[in-house]
Design a protein around this nucleic acid. Structure first.
Lengths: 138, 138
DNA sequence: TTCGTATTTTACCATATGGTTAAATACAAA
DNA sequence: TTTGTATTTAACCATATGGTAAAATACGAA
């Protein structure tokens, strides 16, 4: 029946919010600063209620926060869920890439003399992971 | 009408695939190595067809690849879409955090003597961003 | 108070999603 | 060829999603 902890539920909402191109575009524009609903709606070819709905989805995910000044309800981006999403992905990417590195090593061992294979594999296992990320792995 | 480029469509599918807890759990287990469908189904309280469907969603997103040995169709994780998803998020998180840093500076300027404000803001703008990530920015 | 503007709410519609059971398919082994 | 095991397909159901048009709400300004 799956865990479905609070964190898990939040990830559901965050990833779901990110799975729509209109919402991602809204987010991208929101990243540059606070915007009103009509400002957000302008570039898209959908009606206002559609945007309102999208904003609700993002609000539910904790990705946007809204203000109120007169009849305007400006939106601003809350990046925390984005961080949690990245953290989740990175955890498993890391494991996967470790496995990949291990497979690498294994394949190498299969075609190398057996005596120094263990030593070499211990050596190689560092620095292989997190190729793509900006920093060195932790 | 939104762009809806190929990359955008891929992100749709990837984020949608990640938005379900069962699928995330499958992914997590797949990260530790190849598994057959029944192996994957075992820990969950759902029927096999449900798992088959989940796997199709993940396949469509390019997150899993399947083999075939006799009547088994083992699944293995393909991490590339995960990388693309993280890249997308990181791009906008970075912009947002830059804005945040700028706002910080702005607020500071508002309560500081005007003559050295500009100089101070230029100084502070570095290193503020990417708090959470392992490496240094850019 | 009345008008105009910004936004949300209320039906409503079509399609997608996540699940089920039962039947079909694919293959190995007896 | 029959049997057993792994997996998918088909048909169905309930609910969610993304969209609409039209009405309701909230507020500032005249």
């Amino acid at each position: 029946m799956i865990q479905h902890t609070n964190t898990s539920r939040r990830l559901d909402l965050t990833f779901a919010a990110l799975s729509d191109p209109t919402r991602r575009a809204i987010l991208a524009r929101l990243a540059r600063g606070e915007k009103t609903v009509s400002e957000l709606a302008a570039p898209f070819n959908v009606t206002m209620p559609a945007i309102t709905k999208h904003l609700k989805v993002m609000e539910r995910a904790g990705l946007v926060e809204r203000g109120q000044t007169a009849q305007w309800r400006p939106c601003r981006l809350k990046p925390k869920p984005l961080g949690e999403a990245v953290d989740w992905i990175d955890r498993y990417r890391e494991i996967w890439e470790t496995n990949f590195a291990r497979l690498d090593t294994l394949l190498e061992e299969l075609q190398a003399p057996a005596q120094n294979a263990a030593a070499r594999s211990r050596k190689k296992a560092k620095g292989k992971v997190r190729k793509k990320q900006k920093g060195g792995g932790s």
